[in-house]
Design a protein around this nucleic acid. Structure first.
Length: 595
DNA sequence: GTAGGGTTAG
């Protein structure tokens, strides 16, 4: 007879959670710890910690929130601040600054005291999101309650470095000293790395001197690695190697970062023969090559088109139990693309899931721009659609190149396909629009006439504009294409009013082109598209139309612009209604009134 | 697991 299944202990749940790699299964385990749902389960804090970390790493934020709500009601223990620090970091990595701020503000409601640690974690998460303005706000707020520590300033210094504003990084450095906070090794490591990245090697070395002599802080591996990289960048390998020797002499712990930099530099200098020596020295110093080290070699071989050796390194990694990471595949895929081996590149890309490595945004960008460069348009279009679906965006340059090539080849069909893909991700900027507009002008004039013809019949006494247009459509759009009545209809108050009815236009894409066409042709005017109330506008079309706006334009919240999106074209502001019929109708211009 | 370095694309 089967025993009635027994409830597991809280301790057992924690160890099961620890072992479960799949976050979904872990969640299921957490939610169903015992067979009797009526019997409340006494979760341990450790179980909460484990499940939250797993869900956060997997970016399963809604599920994580659900667990947090449950944690809030537990009164048997008070969660540690570190749990919240982790959550804030997850949101930072996922570029969700508002959620990071929200959980930070909620910490006290979990019966947990906030300290400078969660403040700093929040600062750093906002930095990951490049929310410099919000960082300032948080820092000012922090300053009022708690004294910022070295870590707080270090995050600000890093922000300055990332903004390429070494001046402000220096200012923060001075400010922290004024406030009596001692700079530490991280402070100097951050500043020196920023200086090296900015090519200011002399200043970087001067700062290394200062940190030792003036501040009595010992340079660590981070400082050395930055300096060595800086030297390699200017091809001063002999000094780079001397610095490495200085580390050995001064017993600064040598790690794989330093060796990886040197190996990469040797390949770039055409001295791959010397790499063996470096690997030997690594071994002698008890330093194991990691993925970065191997990747530096793979990159070197790919640059030489020696794919056999590159794959040799790959199998060496597997033999040494060093799991090839996404960079490894990106490097090889990029190498294949550069030499026109598109089939090999695509095959490796498609093999990545089997090799248990998820392609990232760089993988897609590499393959996409590689295929574009190699004129593999059909395949590029497929990759593009897939990447947009994954919420990744290609580089602006490769979009422009792709569009240009398709225009030149007169491949309208594929052009429309990829514009649709791009529109799904709101990835069409004004540069792209300008490129494609000439392509579609002919088509547009036709569609425009068609729609206006029907449209104007709704107005009493409207002349049939389409019939008065020359039958061979001109490629440029001028006022002479319109009759006086049309002009009266089209002209607003110093603006350019246009009434078009979505129902008459075949696709939202052509409508979007149409709007942009008017904007570009009469940059001094305001373009407005009005949509009919009777016709339901499908949401896909809404998004297509909105995506036609140059990137970065967001609907304003002020009442006068409610329901409108702002667009800037040729440095002028245009107001375009968001096409939801009910809102739009109320904004039909009336003669004599308006804006 | 509060903060900094090293490999890839553009």
């Amino acid at each position: 007879m089967a025993k009635p299944s027994k409830s597991i202990s809280p301790f057992r749940l924690a160890s099961l959670l620890r072992l479960q790699k799949d976050p979904n299964l872990a969640l299921h385990l957490f939610l169903n710890p015992n067979p009797n749902p009526n019997k409340p389960f006494r979760y341990s804090l450790l179980s909460y910690d484990l499940i939250i970390t797993k869900l956060g790493r997997a970016k399963m934020f809604d599920e994580m929130d659900q667990i947090l709500q449950q944690l809030k009601t537990e009164t048997r223990f008070n969660p540690d601040e570190i749990i919240f620090c982790n959550i804030i970091t997850f949101y930072g990595r996922a570029r969700l600054p508002d959620r990071a701020l929200r959980i930070f503000n909620q910490i006290p409601s979990f019966r947990c005291q906030r300290t400078i640690k969660s403040f700093n974690t929040l600062l750093n998460a906002l930095l990951s999101c490049r929310e410099f303005g919000k960082m300032r706000e948080v820092f000012v707020g922090l300053d009022r309650c708690v004294a910022p520590d070295a870590c707080s300033y270090n995050v600000l210094i890093r922000a300055g470095c990332l903004m390429n504003d070494l001046g402000s990084a220096r200012e923060v450095f001075d400010e922290m000293q004024k406030r009596g906070v001692r700079p530490d090794a991280v402070t100097f490591g951050t500043l020196i790395s920023g200086l090296c990245a900015g090519g200011k090697l002399d200043e970087a070395f001067k700062l290394k001197e200062d940190m030792e002599r003036g501040f009595r802080v010992r340079p660590d591996g981070f400082v050395y690695a930055s300096l060595i990289k800086g030297l390699c960048k200017v091809n001063d390998l002999s000094l780079a190697f001397k610095l490495k020797d200085e580390m050995l002499e001064r017993r600064v712990e040598l790690d794989s970062a330093v060796f990886s930099t040197l190996i990469s530099a040797l390949f770039k200098a055409g001295r791959k023969g010397d790499v063996v020596g470096v690997l030997k020295e690594m071994k002698e110093n008890g330093c194991k090559p990691d993925a970065v080290t191997y990747n530096a070699m793979i990159y070197g071989y790919c640059q030489e088109k020696d794919f056999n050796s590159a794959f040799g390194v790959l199998s060496e990694m597997e033999k040494r139990r060093c799991k090839p990471d996404v960079v490894c595949y990106n490097v090889i895929i990029g190498g294949f693309c550069r030499v026109g081996k598109f089939r090999e590149a695509t095959e490796l890309f498609e093999d990545m899931p089997r090799r248990k490595c998820a392609p990232d945004v760089v993988t897609y960008r590499t393959l996409f721009s590689g295929l574009c460069d190699g004129m593999q348009f059909q395949d590029a279009a497929l990759i593009l659609d897939e990447m947009v679906f994954k919420d990744y965006s290609p580089s602006a340059a490769s979009i422009v190149k792709f569009v240009d090539e398709l225009c030149q080849a007169g491949n309208l069909k594929l052009l429309l396909t990829i514009l649709n893909s791009l529109a799904k991700g709101n990835l069409i900027d004004s540069v792209t629009w300008r490129r494609v507009i000439p392509m579609f002008q002919q088509l547009l004039i036709f569609k425009f006439r068609h729609s206006v013809k029907v449209d104007l019949t709704l107005h009493k006494g409207a002349p049939k504009m389409a019939e008065q247009l020359p039958s061979s459509a001109s490629s440029s759009w001028t006022e002479s294409d319109f009759t006086p009545f049309d002009m009266k209809l089209l002209r607003g108050y110093g603006g350019f009013w246009m009434a078009a009815y979505t129902g008459r236009l075949r696709t939202a894409v052509s409508l979007a082109f149409f709007v942009l066409l008017i904007c570009c042709k009469s940059p001094s005017s305001e373009a407005r598209v009005l949509l009919s109330k009777e016709k339901e506008v499908p949401s896909m079309e809404d998004s297509l139309i909105l995506s036609a706006l140059p990137k970065g334009t967001t609907p304003r919240s002020s009442p006068s612009h409610k329901g409108h999106a702002m667009a800037t074209i040729n440095e002028r502001l245009y107001v375009l209604p968001i096409p939801h019929a009910d809102r739009v109708l109320s904004s039909v211009p009336s003669p004599g009134g308006g804006h």
